[in-house]
């Protein structure tokens, strides 16, 4: 029942299988989802989603009471739901990846003499 859910989490529609973080949540922080105690498996920023219940690959993710895409992996209650386990049913989402560090040397270049 939703009244046994943490008030740091928002349920936008009773049909939803995800909850939205009202505040940032830290890694390992205990949260309450429909009467079940879960520890956060990763830190979560405000506005991000976690699963409200078990979700299987191919299941629709429901937010605002409507599908917002399909699961690409098994998701446990409390898991972060994002690009790694949810994809659009329309067009792919684009996200910046962190730049590789240290940068790869230019292919075929051999200019290590000065260490730059």
């Amino acid at each position: 029942m939703s009244d046994q859910t943490d008030d740091r989490l928002i349920l936008l529609s009773p049909k939803d299988n995800v909850l939205v973080a009202r505040v940032p949540l830290g890694h390992g922080e205990p949260i309450l989802i429909e009467g079940i105690h879960v520890a956060m498996s990763a830190p979560l920023s405000m506005g991000h989603k976690i699963a409200r219940r078990d979700i299987l690959p191919g299941d629709k993710i429901i937010k605002y009471g409507v599908p917002i895409g399909s699961a690409t992996a098994s998701i446990r209650p409390g898991d972060h739901v994002h690009l790694h386990n949810l994809k659009s049913d329309y067009t792919a989402s684009y996200a910046l990846q962190p730049a590789q560090t240290p940068p790869m040397p230019p292919h075929g270049a051999n200019r290590s003499e000065d260490g730059l």
Binding site: I68, G69, S88, D89, Y90, S93, A95
Partner: peptide, 28 residues
């Protein structure tokens, strides 16, 4: 139109802010 372009109306900062798909951004 967006399928032809290969990108939805979805920027990298949307994902960083917790939005995952264009459908989700649309509902908001």
């Amino acid at each position: 139109y967006y399928a032809t372009l290969g990108y939805g109306s979805f920027a990298a900062g949307n994902a960083e802010g917790g939005l995952t798909t264009i459908e989700e951004k649309s509902m908001g």
